[in-house]
Amino acid sequence: MPGRVRLEDRECPLSTTVARVGEWWTLLILHDAFDGYTRFDQFQANLGISSSMLTTRLKALVADGILERRPYRAGPTRHEYVLTDLGRSLRPVVVALAAWGNARLAPEERSMILVDARTGNEVEPVVVDAATGRGLDDSEAFVFAAGPAASPAMRARYPGGVGRAGAADSPGPG
């Protein structure tokens, strides 16, 4: 799906991430993979997705290094799709999306919740800064800034940068 990213957004990590995993079927395939599904027929039966769409999405996830295609049976050869380290690193993103959706529902309307595997108690996922433990939902405390590889256009959008004066003073629109 790289063709959907505007030329000026190709360096934006949000745009490139959405181009790889932001499509509806792709997120659902990843959700199933996090639940332990690995085989084509498992994904297809659970999602009700067409063979051609599933083939396309699995090929893209393999090409992007998110899933690895491995043979599990010979004669005829059958393959499974296993999460890579890169793929497993997407789990917090999918968990955060599900939590965001659940937060807009009354507790009795939630069809799926995240629980502590040991206690069974429902948990509320939050995204925090690893260094300070502060929640990243405060858009005044945490802003985007131009990074070391930023183009002139990105530097114009985000004039501050890491370790540069004015980073917090010029948050930009993001």
Rank of each mutant, 00 (worst) to 15 (best):
V93K: 09
S89F: 15
P125R: 03
D137G: 01
I113V: 14
Q42I: 03
G133K: 01
F40L: 09
A98R: 06
A33Y: 07
W100K: 05
V21S: 01
D129G: 04
V95H: 12
E109K: 15
W100V: 00
T16P: 00
V127E: 08
T55H: 15
T84D: 07
G48S: 10
R39E: 10
A99N: 02
F34N: 01
I66C: 02
S52R: 14
L28Q: 11
R118T: 01
P76E: 11
H31L: 10
T84G: 06
A96H: 15
A131Q: 10
F40Q: 14
D32V: 01
P107S: 08
A103I: 03
R118D: 07
N121C: 08
A19V: 09
R91H: 13
G48Q: 06
L86D: 15
V95N: 13
L54N: 01
A60I: 11
A45I: 00
G135C: 07
T132A: 08
R104V: 04
V123A: 03
D138P: 00
R110G: 06
D32W: 05
R88S: 09
L105E: 03
W25K: 11
D9I: 07
P76L: 11
R20H: 02
V127Y: 10
P92T: 03
L90H: 00
T16H: 01
H31Q: 11
R6H: 15
A45G: 08
Y81A: 04
R88L: 01
M53S: 09
T17M: 12
N46E: 08
A63P: 14
F43L: 06
R20D: 10
Y81N: 00
S52H: 10
N121L: 09
S52P: 01
K59E: 14
E23N: 08
P125A: 09
G22Y: 00
C12V: 03
H79V: 12
T132D: 06
R91C: 12
K59R: 15
R10E: 07
V18N: 02
W100I: 04
K59N: 11
R70N: 06
T77Y: 13
I113D: 07
A19P: 10
L105S: 12
A63I: 07
G133M: 00
